[in-house]
Each structure stands twice: as C-alpha cells, then as structure tokens.
Nucleic acid binder design. Structure first.
Ligand SMILES: [Zn+2]
Ligand SMILES: [Zn+2]
Ligand SMILES: [Zn+2]
Ligand SMILES: [Zn+2]
Lengths: 138, 138
DNA sequence: TCTTGAACCTCTAGTCACTAGAGATTGTAA
DNA sequence: TTACAATCTCTAGTGACTAGAGGTTCAAGA
C-alpha cells in the first residue's frame, strides 16, 4: 500500500490529476487511512498506468471510461474498443491534415517578411488581413 | 452601419463570439443605437475578418492582440509580427510531429484487433495497458 | 514521547476560446 | 399597432486539468 504521492512518482501523473481522475470515475475511490489519506495497491497503479497511457495517446476521458468498463468485463465483445481506437485514429489523421495546411500557409507567411520593415508594409499582417493570399482553405 | 447579426453572417463568426472578442479587447467597443444595440461599419468588418483569419490559422487571442496593436501603429517595426508567426509555425510543426507518432501507434493498435473477440484477449486493451508494446515514445 | 515539516486533505477558482440558456428589451415589416 | 425575430446582459458550462488557501496527518529524528 502506498500514498498518492508515491503513486504519482511511479506513474508521472500529478497528485491533483489523480484526485481529478477519481472524481471523474476513472479510478475507483481509494482506500483510506484512519486519518483519511488515500492508499493504493498494485491494482490502482495498473489502472492509473492504463489511464495515463490512453491519455498520452489522446483518448478522451469519456472514451477511457468506456474502455475501462470493457476491461472490467473480460467476457464481453471488444467491438467497442476497436471502434474507439479507430475513431481516435481518424481524429488524429484529421488533425494532421488540418495542421499541414496551416503549416504551408504559415511557412509562406513567415518567409514573406524578415521583420526589418515597418508594420504598414508587413507581409505577415497583410496575409492575415486577407485570406485571398492563401493557397489553401483551412 | 449594420447589426451584429449581419456582421456575423458576413464573417461567419457567431454572434456570441463577436461579443466575446469585444470583451477580450480584440474588437473596439461598437457604436450603439439609442436602444443599445451594436452597430458596425466597414472598419469593424475588416478587423473581425482579420481576427477570424488569424484564429483560423491557430493564433491565440493573446497573439492576435499583439498583432492588432502593431496594425494600429503603421510606423512601428514589424519584428514582433514575424516573431509571432515564426513561433506559431514552430508550434504547428511540434504538434504535427507529435500527432504523427500517435498516428503510428494508433494504426498498429487498430490493426491489431478486428473487434470480433472478447475483451480479455483484446489487443487494443492490452496495448493501452502497456506502453512496452509501443514503437515510439509519445 | 515530542516536535517538526513534508505530504496530505477539501474546496474554490482559474485556464482557453468559446457556447448555451434565461429573461428582458428593441427593431422592423406587415 | 402588433407580432416576433433579433438583440441585450448575465451566469454557467465545456475539457482536462492546474493553482492556491487553509487546515490536518504522517513519519522520522531528538
Ligand atoms: Zn513584417
Ligand atoms: Zn487563409
Ligand atoms: Zn479487441
Ligand atoms: Zn505507448
């Protein structure tokens, strides 16, 4: 059994974040000492590692809630899990697509001005004023 | 002179968002009718278009505030503007880098399970439980 | 056993860029 | 004149935390 601080050190999840996950229902309510402090065991550590890893991969709290529910029922079909993963993947691909468009425009905009001129003649400001300068929709 | 709804239609910025921008100091306080409704002119339209375009390119409100300040002083050096654009570009590149790593892992994870099995044996859940399955840091 | 102080507790509020809703007032066209 | 869409202000909610206040508990050293 270890404290919330120890759990934090082992998982690299900050203490207030652990408490937040408990409040959100991702972590079961921890056991408490007589003085009301949380104590965790190996199961708590593993669950938090799962949550942390899923968050690192960009899954939402809501998605993780579904994944955990599934994990708690080993006999259920795992269809939901793949659905969630596939949808997360397509979210990520969408974001990449959009960011690449932005990258293109921002590269052009940044290159257009060396910062040595005056605001009035600045290509950065002109480009922001008028989307017509842009090569793509974004 | 046109109403906030008309401005909204022309810029595709929602009415409450326009009011929010005003509150944040991005838009000057609009003129009002005797009945206290906002009225805008061409200058207001152009400024809102600028803001909208900058937001579409991912600039923060704070950054846009600096850019607007610069735009209001045509004789100042535009160095800040390039700085902001360059920093925005590198933010975007960072994000793309990170998302590409996620894409790799999520592709592997998604492919690893057809959703026909049972939670206990699910590759998605196993992968989330253990970062050791991953090929990259993320 | 006592004392110190780091770690813990709960609760509230702040972050960013909006979005939603309540309840009241105004503008405009038939 | 009347109807009703549009506007007004104000408060609160979103997601996933983070920060801080003010108080309590744990564990180690004297
Ligand atoms: Zn410039
Ligand atoms: Zn553009
Ligand atoms: Zn599966
Ligand atoms: Zn991993």
């Amino acid at each position: 059994m270890f404290s919330i601080g120890e759990l934090s050190r082992r998982t690299k999840v900050k203490v207030p974040t652990i408490r937040y996950y408990e409040e959100m229902g991702l972590l079961a309510e921890a056991e408490r000492t007589s003085g009301n402090q949380r104590r965790y065991d190996k199961a708590g550590l593993e669950r938090l590692s799962f949550i942390r890893h899923a968050r690192d991969l960009g899954f939402s709290i809501e998605a993780i809630l579904s994944l955990i529910e599934l994990q708690d029922h080993p006999d259920r079909s795992c269809e939901t899990a793949t659905d969630i993963a596939v949808s997360q993947l397509s979210d990520v691909r969408e974001k990449i697509k959009r960011l690449k468009l932005l990258e293109k425009e921002l590269t052009r905009i940044s290159k257009g001005c060396d910062g040595l001129g005056v605001s009035e003649d600045c290509y950065v400001l002109a480009s922001l004023s008028d989307h017509e300068h842009c090569e793509n929709e974004h």
